[in-house]
């Protein structure tokens, strides 16, 4: 049996202010369409890095309905 991997919803990152700022700054000067494309590329990189479909599905569900 493969271990079930859950989405980590506890604080898990040092330098979170730096990351948050970088996520926003990279959009400077972009149109809404360009921003969307950039966000999607980020999502694709990160989902692949995470590499566990169940974790992604859980994140999608929680993002769509955070409560």
């Amino acid at each position: 049996m493969k271990p079930v991997i859950k989405l980590n919803t506890k604080a898990n990152m040092l330098r979170c202010d730096d990351v948050y700022e970088a996520l926003i700054n990279v959009h400077t000067g972009l149109s809404p369409q360009e921003s969307m494309r950039l966000n999607i590329k980020l999502v694709l990189f990160l989902t692949n890095h995470i590499g566990h479909a169940d974790v992604i599905f859980e994140a999608i569900a929680k993002a769509a309905n955070p409560k």
């Binding site: 369409q33 969307m36 494309r37 999607i40 590329k41 694709l44 990189f45 692949n48």
Partner: peptide, 21 residues
């Protein structure tokens, strides 16, 4: 849809350079 077109183009763009895409 606009978002599904954007996903498609993003995947194609990354596929050029990155194996994972």
């Amino acid at each position: 849809s606009e978002v599904s077109t954007a996903f498609r183009d993003a995947a194609l763009e990354l596929a050029n350079t990155y194996e994972f895409a």
